[in-house]
Design a protein around this nucleic acid. Sequence first.
DNA 1: ACTTATTAGTATAAGCAATACACAGTTCTA
DNA 2: TAGAACTGTGTATTGCTTATACTAATAAGT
Lengths: 262, 262
Amino acid sequence: MTTEDERKSRMARDVELLWGLDTTPARRGPKPRLSREAVVRAAIGVADAEGIEAVSMQRVARELGYTTMSLYRHVDSKEDMLVLMLDTATDGVPPAPREDGDWRAGLEEWCNGALEMHRAHPWSVFVAFSAPPSGPNGLRWMEAGLRELVASGLDVGESLQMLTILSAVVRDTVRLEIEMTRAAQSTGSTLVESENDYSQSLRRVVTAERFPTIDRMLREGVLGEAPAPGRTGGPAEELDFGIRRILDGIESYVRAERGTGG
Amino acid sequence: MTTEDERKSRMARDVELLWGLDTTPARRGPKPRLSREAVVRAAIGVADAEGIEAVSMQRVARELGYTTMSLYRHVDSKEDMLVLMLDTATDGVPPAPREDGDWRAGLEEWCNGALEMHRAHPWSVFVAFSAPPSGPNGLRWMEAGLRELVASGLDVGESLQMLTILSAVVRDTVRLEIEMTRAAQSTGSTLVESENDYSQSLRRVVTAERFPTIDRMLREGVLGEAPAPGRTGGPAEELDFGIRRILDGIESYVRAERGTGG
DNA sequence: ACTTATTAGTATAAGCAATACACAGTTCTA
DNA sequence: TAGAACTGTGTATTGCTTATACTAATAAGT
């Protein structure tokens, strides 16, 4: 809200924004009927119900029964609103510290928690954050993940690096699944049908000479076909495998480091 | 262009779009002075020079010296244009097959190649594809990556899963670096200065009680401080470490599988 | 009572993707 | 060879978008 220092970095601004360090309680003027919190909550409501593309200042204002411009009294810009939405949506509780020191289990829990969060607020995977976590909720999740990574034996810098990777993998997998599901639904078919359709289309352009491995993939029916009953066949289905390989990688690295006295 | 089948899946549509299977040479009417290729090339030019947010139908048309609506004769929608841009921008040559069978080196080359591609067209990391690769260039890269992964001993499905992860990691890392650099530049500071600024801000809200690991991270100066000379200190700097851990994970998994007769 | 800060509303600018239609150019057919 | 059929580009326009500038009403401090 305050514009005191234009030279402040975006990341530093985010911290103030998300911790409410930028608002001083008004001493004069009418009592605000609207609030920043209400705006953000309404925006999340719209995003949950109709997707992030439905979130416009007009739409959120209409939801609240106010004019478009009144929102700008509580939020500097739509971008700020999105940043606030993201931290607010992350208000779930990250996994507690493992008593048994099983960092692998701890990180699998963390990834599943992140997966759940994104599934509860699908729009969250489309809001590209432009800075490391800065808000109370974001930092809580970051702390929970870093804690387990450090417990594995990585140093703090390495842990941060791997946490960035884990969250990127989870987020991007959910994103792809959502987009593919959405695309499938828009033609009135299921994800599996759509994948089969895609597979069929690829066969028209994929030759064994130019694309031997992809050709093999298509022949082996990796895409589509019939997934196990009750399963979607989507990307997130096999997320566990990839996550476990990353954890394998951490484990073998730490073990090797310990061996060489690292 | 043709709208024959509305029930066709998005992924199948992408294949036809990207391989030009949807255009039949016109038999009547004026010779087209504009072409799909020219439109896409102009759009890429704008995106390269001014970022993806500068790419509008108006802007691209202006670049070409035509009216906005003339573009729609060559491209069905802006979304289609973005899909075409992405495959076209991927026209670099992916690493050739390793003669020595060193799949780890092959995959590191692949990741570096992808990194280079994104650096050459920074906007590419902001264009969220909503389907697996479908175009000639996308498939070429996919083939090159899958080939090395299969060489590692993974089956084709597992390879696809890991390739998705590798490309997500590279893309997201570049994205974060670009956003942070952009944010830093907008306040006239460097990335390191900005990170230090962020670190400083975090100290105001991070306590050792609530966020012990983050607190440690800040004390150890993981963010910002002075990177090695000539280095930016950005996220992509340490990308190699994460990639190697993922490769470690693949290696240890394959080895274990082989041991159990997998 | 009067000044001053604050909230919400109004008016509006500048830009966005996309539809509908007019018109001119080109080729195939009768 | 005449004209129907079709195609490429331009014009007009709709209904969105974020955001700035300003007005009227409100409440607190002096």
